Computed example of a mutant assay.
Amino acid sequence: MVRIIEDLAGDWRRLDERVEGLSNEIEAIARQDAGCGRLMSVPGIGPIISSAMVAAIGAGDVFTKGRDFAAWLGLVPKQISTGDRTILGKISRRGNRYLRVLFVQAAWVVLIKPKSWERHGLKSWIEAAKKRLHRNVLAIALANKLARIAWSVLAHGRSFEASKFNEAIT
Protein backbone atom coordinates (compact mmCIF):
# COMPACT_ATOMS: atom_id res chain seq x y z
CA MET A 1 0.00 0.00 0.00
CA VAL A 2 2.86 2.37 0.82
CA ARG A 3 4.41 1.73 -2.60
CA ILE A 4 1.14 2.59 -4.35
CA ILE A 5 0.88 5.86 -2.42
CA GLU A 6 4.52 6.71 -3.26
CA ASP A 7 3.86 6.02 -6.95
CA LEU A 8 0.76 8.23 -6.87
CA ALA A 9 2.73 11.01 -5.15
CA GLY A 10 5.39 10.72 -7.87
CA ASP A 11 2.71 10.95 -10.56
CA TRP A 12 1.30 14.00 -8.81
CA ARG A 13 4.71 15.72 -8.77
CA ARG A 14 5.26 14.98 -12.47
CA LEU A 15 1.82 16.41 -13.30
CA ASP A 16 2.60 19.53 -11.24
CA GLU A 17 5.85 19.97 -13.16
CA ARG A 18 4.05 19.53 -16.47
CA VAL A 19 1.34 22.05 -15.52
CA GLU A 20 4.02 24.51 -14.41
CA GLY A 21 5.86 24.08 -17.72
CA LEU A 22 2.69 24.62 -19.76
CA SER A 23 1.75 27.66 -17.67
CA ASN A 24 5.17 29.17 -18.30
CA GLU A 25 4.79 28.48 -22.02
CA ILE A 26 1.35 30.14 -22.14
CA GLU A 27 2.71 33.13 -20.23
CA ALA A 28 5.65 33.49 -22.65
CA ILE A 29 3.31 33.37 -25.66
CA ALA A 30 0.95 35.90 -24.07
CA ARG A 31 3.79 38.32 -23.29
CA GLN A 32 4.94 38.23 -26.95
CA ASP A 33 1.51 39.17 -28.34
CA ALA A 34 0.62 42.88 -28.18
CA GLY A 35 -3.12 42.22 -27.78
CA CYS A 36 -2.53 39.84 -24.90
CA GLY A 37 -0.25 42.36 -23.25
CA ARG A 38 -2.94 45.04 -23.41
CA LEU A 39 -5.57 42.62 -22.10
CA MET A 40 -3.41 41.78 -19.10
CA SER A 41 -3.71 45.42 -18.00
CA VAL A 42 -7.42 44.79 -17.25
CA PRO A 43 -8.03 43.79 -13.60
CA GLY A 44 -8.37 40.04 -13.08
CA ILE A 45 -7.09 39.12 -16.55
CA GLY A 46 -3.84 37.24 -16.81
CA PRO A 47 -1.99 35.27 -19.48
CA ILE A 48 -4.51 32.41 -19.71
CA ILE A 49 -7.59 34.58 -20.19
CA SER A 50 -5.84 37.00 -22.54
CA SER A 51 -4.46 34.24 -24.76
CA ALA A 52 -7.83 32.43 -24.79
CA MET A 53 -9.64 35.64 -25.73
CA VAL A 54 -7.20 36.50 -28.53
CA ALA A 55 -7.42 32.92 -29.80
CA ALA A 56 -11.24 33.07 -29.77
CA ILE A 57 -11.92 36.52 -31.26
CA GLY A 58 -8.63 37.78 -32.66
CA ALA A 59 -8.48 41.58 -32.65
CA GLY A 60 -12.12 41.88 -31.55
CA ASP A 61 -13.35 43.33 -34.84
CA VAL A 62 -15.93 40.54 -35.12
CA PHE A 63 -18.14 42.43 -32.65
CA THR A 64 -19.34 46.00 -33.04
CA LYS A 65 -19.49 46.70 -29.30
CA GLY A 66 -18.66 45.17 -25.94
CA ARG A 67 -22.30 44.32 -25.29
CA ASP A 68 -22.28 42.01 -28.31
CA PHE A 69 -19.16 40.26 -27.03
CA ALA A 70 -20.68 39.80 -23.55
CA ALA A 71 -23.85 38.41 -25.13
CA TRP A 72 -21.78 36.03 -27.26
CA LEU A 73 -20.10 34.80 -24.07
CA GLY A 74 -23.50 34.23 -22.45
CA LEU A 75 -22.95 36.76 -19.65
CA VAL A 76 -26.21 38.63 -20.21
CA PRO A 77 -29.59 37.69 -18.76
CA LYS A 78 -32.23 35.97 -20.82
CA GLN A 79 -34.95 38.44 -21.65
CA ILE A 80 -38.59 37.44 -21.70
CA SER A 81 -40.80 40.20 -23.08
CA THR A 82 -44.55 40.32 -23.43
CA GLY A 83 -46.21 43.56 -24.39
CA ASP A 84 -44.82 46.30 -22.20
CA ARG A 85 -43.41 43.96 -19.54
CA THR A 86 -39.78 42.81 -19.64
CA ILE A 87 -38.50 40.09 -17.33
CA LEU A 88 -34.78 39.43 -17.00
CA GLY A 89 -33.89 35.85 -16.13
CA LYS A 90 -30.71 33.88 -15.55
CA ILE A 91 -27.64 34.34 -17.73
CA SER A 92 -28.12 32.85 -21.15
CA ARG A 93 -25.00 30.62 -21.02
CA ARG A 94 -24.65 30.69 -24.77
CA GLY A 95 -21.39 31.06 -26.60
CA ASN A 96 -17.89 30.14 -25.53
CA ARG A 97 -18.22 28.29 -22.21
CA TYR A 98 -14.48 28.24 -21.54
CA LEU A 99 -14.09 32.02 -21.88
CA ARG A 100 -17.26 32.63 -19.85
CA VAL A 101 -15.89 30.51 -16.99
CA LEU A 102 -12.56 32.35 -17.17
CA PHE A 103 -14.23 35.75 -16.97
CA VAL A 104 -16.34 34.65 -13.99
CA GLN A 105 -13.14 33.45 -12.28
CA ALA A 106 -11.54 36.82 -13.04
CA ALA A 107 -14.53 38.57 -11.46
CA TRP A 108 -14.19 36.49 -8.29
CA VAL A 109 -10.49 37.32 -8.13
CA VAL A 110 -11.29 41.03 -8.33
CA LEU A 111 -14.08 40.73 -5.75
CA ILE A 112 -11.90 39.04 -3.13
CA LYS A 113 -9.31 41.83 -3.32
CA PRO A 114 -11.18 44.98 -2.18
CA LYS A 115 -7.95 46.95 -1.76
CA SER A 116 -7.44 46.88 -5.54
CA TRP A 117 -10.92 48.21 -6.38
CA GLU A 118 -10.00 51.87 -6.09
CA ARG A 119 -6.73 51.44 -7.98
CA HIS A 120 -8.65 49.91 -10.91
CA GLY A 121 -11.49 52.43 -10.71
CA LEU A 122 -14.11 49.83 -9.80
CA LYS A 123 -14.74 50.75 -6.16
CA SER A 124 -17.85 52.92 -6.58
CA TRP A 125 -19.45 50.52 -9.06
CA ILE A 126 -18.79 47.40 -6.95
CA GLU A 127 -19.95 49.03 -3.70
CA ALA A 128 -23.18 50.28 -5.32
CA ALA A 129 -23.85 46.88 -6.91
CA LYS A 130 -23.02 45.08 -3.65
CA LYS A 131 -25.91 46.85 -1.92
CA ARG A 132 -28.51 45.59 -4.36
CA LEU A 133 -27.19 42.26 -5.71
CA HIS A 134 -26.49 38.83 -4.26
CA ARG A 135 -22.75 38.05 -4.30
CA ASN A 136 -23.11 35.44 -7.08
CA VAL A 137 -25.13 37.83 -9.25
CA LEU A 138 -22.53 40.51 -8.50
CA ALA A 139 -19.78 38.19 -9.74
CA ILE A 140 -21.63 37.61 -13.03
CA ALA A 141 -22.31 41.34 -13.42
CA LEU A 142 -18.64 42.09 -12.83
CA ALA A 143 -17.65 39.34 -15.28
CA ASN A 144 -19.92 41.02 -17.84
CA LYS A 145 -18.26 44.38 -17.11
CA LEU A 146 -14.76 42.91 -17.35
CA ALA A 147 -15.63 41.22 -20.65
CA ARG A 148 -16.86 44.52 -22.08
CA ILE A 149 -13.74 46.32 -20.87
CA ALA A 150 -11.53 43.56 -22.29
CA TRP A 151 -13.25 43.77 -25.68
CA SER A 152 -12.80 47.55 -25.71
CA VAL A 153 -9.12 47.25 -24.83
CA LEU A 154 -8.58 44.69 -27.57
CA ALA A 155 -10.69 46.37 -30.25
CA HIS A 156 -9.37 49.90 -29.72
CA GLY A 157 -5.74 48.89 -29.27
CA ARG A 158 -5.24 50.71 -25.95
CA SER A 159 -4.29 49.47 -22.50
CA PHE A 160 -6.73 49.71 -19.61
CA GLU A 161 -6.44 52.98 -17.69
CA ALA A 162 -8.41 53.42 -14.49
CA SER A 163 -8.54 57.22 -14.76
CA LYS A 164 -10.36 57.09 -18.10
CA PHE A 165 -12.68 54.42 -16.68
CA ASN A 166 -13.55 56.64 -13.70
CA GLU A 167 -14.38 59.55 -16.00
CA ALA A 168 -16.73 57.31 -17.99
CA ILE A 169 -18.66 56.32 -14.86
CA THR A 170 -19.36 59.83 -13.61
Rank of each mutant, 00 (worst) to 15 (best):
V2G: 14
A9W: 00
G10H: 08
D16H: 06
E17V: 00
E20M: 04
S23T: 10
I26S: 02
A28S: 13
D33N: 15
A34P: 14
G35Q: 12
R38T: 08
G46C: 05
P47L: 00
I49R: 04
A55K: 01
F63I: 02
G66Y: 01
D68S: 13
F69E: 10
W72E: 07
W72Y: 15
G74N: 06
L75Q: 04
L75I: 02
V76H: 05
V76T: 15
P77W: 01
K78I: 09
Q79R: 14
R85Q: 12
K90A: 14
R93D: 07
R93Y: 12
R97L: 08
L99H: 05
F103Y: 08
A106Y: 03
A107P: 09
V109I: 07
V110R: 03
K113D: 12
P114D: 06
P114V: 04
S116F: 02
S124H: 12
W125F: 11
I126T: 04
I126R: 02
A128K: 14
A128Q: 13
K130Q: 12
N136Q: 12
N144S: 07
K145G: 03
L146M: 03
A147C: 04
I149W: 04
A150D: 09
S152G: 15
L154A: 08
A155T: 04
H156Q: 13
F160Q: 10
F160V: 08
S163N: 14
F165H: 15
F165M: 11
A168L: 14
I169Q: 15
T170N: 15
